Amino acid sequence: MTTIYTLSQLGWSPFFQQQLSLDECEACVPARVVSQHRSYLVLYTERGKQELPLLASMPILAVGDWVLLTVDGAFHRQLDRLSIFSRKAPGRKVSEQLIASNINTVFIVVALNQNFSLNRIERYLVLTKDAGAEAVIVLTKSDLCDEPSSYVNQVQALDPMLMVEALDARDACCTEVLEPWCRAGNTVAVLGSSGVGKSTLVNTLLGEVTQATASAREADDKGRHTTTTRTLHLMKTGGILLDTPGMRELQLADCESGIDETFSEISELASQCRYSDCQHQSEPGCAVQEAIRASKFDERRLRSYQKLKREQAHNGASLAEKRAKDRSFSRHVRSVMNDVIQRKKG
């Protein structure tokens, strides 16, 4: 039996509707990418589920994208994105990797064990804020923690307006606190490192086992990969849930606005330093160091800010250089092809 969804159930909004011309409203079918495979995409439309072969002529698409199809199911064009999540590709490869698009809310999942890290939370916050999505910190495995409230307070200190929930991801009663973000039409992404309980949380929110789970290694609480693909699921509450593989490595690039928003207190103080190129170390008139001495925030926060600033600047420059080389190579190829065509005509 084919399950039929309305566009609003799939996350359609006026933002996407206003991009359609009158002709497209009549002749095209909106479809959302719900999963991606090596040679094809799985899409949901008001007509049901369908597969779309990946062609070289198509743009690079991500799970969550909206596209328009012709009446016979062929690709017509991609719609502009409401938000886009990307990172520098893991390892030494200089390229950008798309994670997901058109996400409204991100559940940043962190386990309350020895792998808990404020620096890692800040890294995910930068990614989320730079994409323009709302962040909710979900602290899992609270049942195994003696004082979960102390961790909640640590995270809350990063930003008094930040939403933080500590829970047992296996318990449906505990996860009810997340329902305000799982409302109809809202797309939620679950991001976090391997082994923090993301798949367990996804299974509980969906009310069924859709993802395999595995315990963390006892020696170091490091996780094992159990989710290997990105997939959109529809929740019983009406929301759309995106599960993602655990990330052992999340390198940031081109996300300066996300850093400035995540570390807004430091960014604002930096503009008050005596020197415009202040490194916030021992320079006279450093407003940031004065704030640390006044215990307005700690040294760890500044080190995290500086590390992410350096990383995004380095990766951003590397990606920009690669894009410039790619454009130069494309121009060279076109020039050679034009010369060949002209010689054949001559």
Rank of each mutant, 00 (worst) to 15 (best):
A214M: 10
W181Q: 06
S271N: 14
R331E: 12
A56K: 15
M161S: 14
E261P: 05
S8V: 04
A27R: 10
Q156V: 08
E299A: 08
D130W: 04
E256I: 04
L241I: 03
D326L: 15
G197I: 07
H233A: 10
T6K: 07
W12T: 02
P30K: 01
C28P: 10
K49Q: 13
M1W: 06
A214Q: 10
V106N: 03
V155T: 09
C174S: 11
G91N: 06
L191I: 06
A62T: 05
G185K: 05
G64T: 03
H76D: 14
E165K: 02
T2V: 15
K236R: 08
R81A: 06
V63L: 10
F15R: 00
T70W: 15
R183I: 04
C173M: 14
I137H: 05
L319P: 00
P30Y: 00
R81D: 11
N203D: 07
T45L: 07
G132Q: 03
M1H: 12
K141H: 06
S335G: 09
L82Y: 05
R300K: 15
D277H: 07
A270T: 01
G197F: 07
E46R: 04
Q50L: 15
R38E: 14
A131E: 05
L242E: 02
A294T: 02
C273S: 08
V188K: 01
Q281W: 11
S83A: 07
S21E: 04
E265C: 14
C278S: 07
K49N: 13
L54A: 04
A270G: 03
V94K: 01
T229H: 12
G48Y: 06
R323S: 05
R301E: 05
S282M: 10
E176A: 14
L22F: 09
T244P: 14
L205M: 12
C173V: 12
T128N: 08
A27M: 12
R87E: 07
A133E: 13
R248E: 15
C174A: 13
M247W: 13
W66M: 03
K344E: 09
L242K: 00
K236Q: 13
S95D: 10
S199W: 02
K309R: 04
G11T: 00
D80A: 06
R77K: 09
Q211G: 14
Q114M: 09
D221T: 06
L319D: 06
R47A: 15
S8F: 10
D260N: 11
I266L: 09
D254Y: 10
R217G: 15
T226F: 09
A74Q: 11
I60M: 15
N338R: 12
L178A: 08
A31S: 07
T204N: 10
A324G: 09
T244S: 15
C25W: 13
L319R: 00
E249R: 00
V196S: 00
V126D: 02
L144F: 08
P59R: 12
C255W: 02
D72E: 02
Q9E: 13
Q281I: 05
W66V: 01
S101Q: 02
V109F: 14
V94S: 03
S21F: 01
M58I: 09
C182L: 11
F16W: 00
N186R: 11
